[in-house]
Structure formats: structure tokens, C-alpha cells
Nucleic acid binder design. Sequence first.
DNA 1: TATTGTTATACTCTATAACTATA
DNA 2: TATAGTTATAGAGTATAACAATA
Lengths: 139, 139
Amino acid sequence: MADRPDLAAMMARLTRVLMNAERPVLESHGVSMWGYVVLSALADEPMRTQAALARAIGADKTRIIADLDDLQERGLIEREPDPADRRVRLLRLTAAGRKLHQAVRTAIRAEEERLLAGLTSAQKQLFLRILQDLDPGTR
Amino acid sequence: MADRPDLAAMMARLTRVLMNAERPVLESHGVSMWGYVVLSALADEPMRTQAALARAIGADKTRIIADLDDLQERGLIEREPDPADRRVRLLRLTAAGRKLHQAVRTAIRAEEERLLAGLTSAQKQLFLRILQDLDPGTR
DNA sequence: TATTGTTATACTCTATAACTATA
DNA sequence: TATAGTTATAGAGTATAACAATA
């Protein structure tokens, strides 16, 4: 590879490693990847429509419906028709949902720390800062 | 997201952005993503079996066959039975294949530069270095 | 008529299993 | 019988299109 592998190749491999490490964490809490992403978005701020939520997390609106069904059945999110416009569903975390999200997030942070364990604390900070700067999803 | 988005979320988003930016580059050279990955691996070193190549690039052996067919038909790789064991196929780039790989790689490096344009040269170097250190694919 | 959410369908990608040809 | 490569089949994930409810 001459000097270094392609950036996309390295990023894709690392993403896969991370996701593989996090899968058991998610499973142990009984939540799917998209379920966790939904919880994260709603932990950030409640949403007025499912379409807005889907857009916020970069998913298709049809793709998150099953996850919303599941999260709602388990009492992790509330999803009630807006009285002012009964087509839209107001979405927000329940107390249980917020608690679960925080628990999963803490466990995931621990996995991230494991992946970055070889870096000095200065390198770690710099790496994360650069990623945030490049990240189009950081609002 | 409290302090920062999850690492996996940032990595996945960035990977997607990169791949979207690179897709037109690959298309303009008439090569698929896996085709380019194959060319990259063979540019690194010839392979004695397709299974070894598949393993090297993290793909299933059945998944790369169509790409190998295509690359061979276009004279970009050689793929001849080993006289010593006619079950295995010896794989290597042709001169044309090496030339195409270098052209695509150069174009992809340009896209990478665009993504990283906001960073100082020191940040850029550090970022790439850290990625290489974390990358399990760096042999 | 336009929009939100939902369901149904199709398409892409990948993995698994079955087959051939060599050894 | 075991292995490399190939083809065929099935499964998961995703996107597209059609539909029902509401405005």
C-alpha cells in the first residue's frame, strides 16, 4: 500500500471493529443499533414528527417504524398524536428510556476507551476533536 | 449528545461521506469499490489463491468472483491456474492494472485531501497516524 | 390536493449450501 | 477424501412505491 492504506478503508475497518465490539453491549441491554440511535437522538431533544427523527439520524422514515414500535411497547419512548395535527406523532423519551440510554451509553463509552487504550490522553483528545470537526452530524 | 456523539456514529458518518465522494471517482474509472480493493491488494503483493485474496481484503471468497471476472476480461489482472496445482489461480496485476490502480488511487487521495482540507497539516498527519495505529488492517 | 405515518414490494448486498474440477 | 473455485439459493438490510388517515 506504498505509504498508507486508503482513508476510507481504514475508517471502514475501524467502524466495523467498533460495531462488533458494541454489538454484545447493545444485545445485553436488549436494544438494536437503530433503537439505540433513536434513544440517543431523543435524549438530545424530543421530536415533533417521525420524519424529522429519521432525517436527524440519517435513516429512511420507513426504516425506523419497527424500532419505534418496539421502544414504545417497552415503555422507553412516548409517541402520541399531536392534538393540533393528528397526523404527526410527538416523540420523547420516558424516564425509563432515558435511564436505559444512559446505561448503554456508559457501556459504549467503555468500549470506545478500550479501542483507544493504546493512545496517550493527548492523542485521544486530539483524535476525538478532529473527528467532531469533520463530522457532518455534529449539529 | 451531552459532550460528544458516539465514536462509532461519527466514524460511520464520515465513512459514508467519504464513500459518497469517492463513488463518482470509481465510476469514472469504470471500477467497482470491490474491484478497486482487489487492485489495491494485488498492487501490494500478488496472491496465490482467491481465498487468500478474499481473506486479505475481508471479503467472502464467493463475493469477489464477479469482480475478478470483470477485471480479468478487461486485462487488468492475470489469473492463471498454477501448473503445480491446477485448482488454484495465481493472481497478479497486469501493467494496465497497475496503471489504473495508481490513477484511481491518486484521484481518491485528492478526495481525501478535500475532506481533510479544514485541518492544519500537523493535525492531518496526526489524524492519519492515529488511524494507522488503530487500524487492524495495517500489516 | 398535500402531508404523516404505515404497509407492501422490490432491490442490493452478503452469507450458506450445493456443485465441479482437481488433488 | 479433501480443497479451490464456482454457481445457486436464501437471508438481512435497505429503498421505492402504494395506501390510509388527516389536514
